[in-house]
Design a protein around this nucleic acid. Structure first.
Lengths: 299, 299
DNA sequence: GAGGGGTCATAGACTTCGGCTATGCCGGAC
DNA sequence: GTCCGGCATAGCCGAAGTCTATGACCCCTC
């Protein structure tokens, strides 16, 4: 992979571009950003040079986006959204105070859904503080029961008793492998029996992903298994040809469209599951907790 | 819009973190990044300080991610993906050569789908050069017919003749308004007749979005209309209370989950449409064009 | 159990980059 | 004509990033 190809643009410049689009002038964006007008002008100029595009049409009455600028700005907002999600997630990991919503989430939820919710929460309840802990589904339930957490998010099929649960989202595990894996050349769907005879990469015991897989293949014993404790590690191992795996669609969406992993059709395997929120029955949630709970159920 | 005063993390640091995750050591990541090991060490340290999190567990055999580091890295990859999309899009706008795939796309496709495809294309056919032009659906068809483009992407319902077309994706327009808009308090769905009596913000004539709207409301004349020529401008106007609008779900997905715009239920309005690819019948696509065409149909 | 090869952090010198103030140019408004 | 708002340029300065050199640490091997 060539890495040093081109200097990455500056996030500050990207944000500034979005501010220019909002305010209609470079100077206005500079004021909002708390920097001087010449600095803003220069930042934008550097960004234009780096991208090789004219983004703004400078008029003496202000600046407006060119056609190219309009597109780049839209794409820039996507980068800023992802950055917001990262920062919101980091803030939730760092927070330890007591006036905070305490959340426990299983890996898939924490990785792929939680940061979005947190970023959105920040725009709705900007004062809300969230402490996020990541553990497997079993641990999440225990934490909620013990009162260590206000909200929990799990991905395992088991029904915890004594807790209020609600489905946040339907999820599905997919059988995937590296391009060129024998499974990719099959004409018939893969069955549970087929899985037993192949090298598999799986998540650790206690993870929701593992539970769904074991439920789907029944009591049969899996052989030749490489066990790893994170979705990222699993994906890397599978892409490197260590075997096939069964993993959440959320976790491999990017890899599938990019083609670095391919989905294998299956037959007779029920790999659907639900991502659910759990909380103590009868507990009165704080406003921030209620907001997060509501957010996480939207679409 | 929050005017973030907190320092934004550095994209270089974010990429470096992902490289550390891939290589398992700071020094290794530094080599891949073309910088010295101490520089990499410092960059990571600064990132950790900025986020307030310990991301790496430094061992003398290398470095491994902490639990927090694992999560942050996953979120960081999302930022990098968005950045890749932006850069790939910018490259496509800047390219003018003749050995390139010439693509024309309507606004919705160009804004929300094309950069992802381009970023993916870059990982598959790294040498591919793409020239992207944005125009409304009518213009796209004309460009493809005239041979100015190899591939076109449109969002209008009309069937261009003499061209090969294929559906890339199902899309749907949504009626949305700002929170507090009278429509949001209605108990019954909004009908075509209701739309005629309200202030609307619409895209310009010739845009696919406009065509779908006009087809849905029939021949009736819309009154009290503010006409703008980009989805972004429309969203800003609607959020500011200028009226309701009908706009692609792709364009407002973020705003809806964030709650800055709300969807209004409708009845008797067919707002579905298809985003389609068009090309000249019988034209033999270049390998890069074929790859892009295939990519855009995945999923 | 001593050395080699790998890891990472620190120190100090140098350079680069981005910020600010001051100023000039330009076009529209009055 | 004059004024005002917006933008670019120039020049200075400080912060931040980079490099090389070096030391501490651990694992592995012999």
């Amino acid at each position: 992979m060539p890495d040093r190809s081109a200097p990455l643009p500056d996030l500050d410049a990207i944000r500034l571009l979005a501010l220019v689009a909002d305010t209609g002038s470079i100077g206005g964006a500079a004021r909002r950003d708390g920097i001087s007008q010449p600095s803003a002008s220069k930042r934008i100029a550097v960004l234009e040079r780096r991208l090789g595009l004219r983004l703004l049409r400078r008029r003496t009455t202000g600046s407006e986006l060119t056609d190219h600028g309009r597109l780049v700005t839209e794409w820039a907002r996507e980068v800023l959204r992802a950055t917001d999600a990262l920062l919101a997630g980091a803030a939730a990991l760092r927070t330890a105070g007591s006036e905070t919503v305490r959340v426990a989430a299983s890996q898939t939820v924490a990785e792929y859904l939680m940061p979005l919710w947190l970023a959105e929460l920040r725009t709705v309840e900007s004062g809300a503080r969230v402490r996020l802990e990541v553990m497997n589904s079993t641990g999440v339930v225990a934490a909620v029961v013990a009162g260590d957490c206000d909200l929990g998010y799990i991905e395992s099929p088991g029904v915890p008793k004594g807790l209020t649960t609600s489905t946040v989202r339907d999820d599905e595990l997919l059988l995937v492998a590296a391009p060129g894996h024998p499974f990719t050349r099959r004409r018939t769907p893969v069955t549970a029996a087929d899985l037993l005879g192949t090298a598999l990469v799986v998540r650790e015991q206690g993870s929701g992903t593992r539970e769904v897989l074991e439920r789907a293949v029944g009591t049969l014993e899996l052989a030749d298994v490489l066990e790893l404790d994170s979705n990222a590690a699993v994906k890397i191992a599978v892409a490197a040809g260590a075997g096939a795996t069964v993993i959440s669609r959320l976790a491999v969406a990017a890899e599938l469209t990019r083609g670095s992993l391919v989905q294998i059709r299956t037959d007779g395997l029920d790999l659907r599951r639900q991502l659910r929120m759990v909380s103590r029955r009868g507990a009165r949630p704080s406003p921030a907790a209620a907001a997060l709970a509501q957010l996480s159920h939207r679409r």
